[in-house]
């Protein structure tokens, strides 16, 4: 049987409760990534159990705050800091917030604009 690899679009009000549910189901955080849409960001949170993987897909406005999942998954801190620094996504309440000083690059939020 092919392992599951699906993307589940999700609304903000469902987001944290779903992550808590995943945590209780003993899922492993695979990765967090952002991509740029016009005026918006698309955040993908991948979780896996054994070989199956589910991706939560969150679409947020450019300046909208996003809650951090480091309360549930402390290991997310590196990837959340990276997303905040490179894209400028407003991720709030990260445990171990580097305040945009993770990579310490000269150019601010290089991934925000194209090219």
């Amino acid at each position: 049987m092919e392992p599951i690899n699906e993307i589940i679009p999700i609304e903000m009000d469902q987001f944290l409760s779903t992550v808590i549910q995943f945590k209780m189901d003993k899922m492993r955080l695979v990765q967090i990534c952002a991509s740029r849409l016009p005026g918006q960001y698309e955040l993908s949170y991948c979780f896996a159990r054994d070989l199956d993987m589910w991706t939560l897909r969150l679409t947020v406005d450019e300046n909208a705050p996003v809650p951090s999942i480091t309360q549930m998954y402390p290991c997310a801190f590196l990837q959340e800091n990276e997303t905040a620094e490179l894209f400028g996504v407003k991720i709030e309440n990260i445990v171990n917030d580097y305040q945009n000083r993770l990579y310490r690059i000269d150019r601010e939020t290089p991934f925000k604009e194209k090219g």
């Binding site: 991509s35 740029r36 290991c75 801190f77 590196l78 990837q79």
Partner: peptide, 24 residues
């Protein structure tokens, strides 16, 4: 992760490497 838009330039390429996960 690859996200393409029908042109020869991709929108996004993301690589989550093993060490990123192994640092925590």
């Amino acid at each position: 992760y690859v996200r393409a838009n029908g042109t020869k330039f991709l929108d996004r390429f993301r690589l989550r490497t093993p060490t990123t996960s192994n640092i925590p």
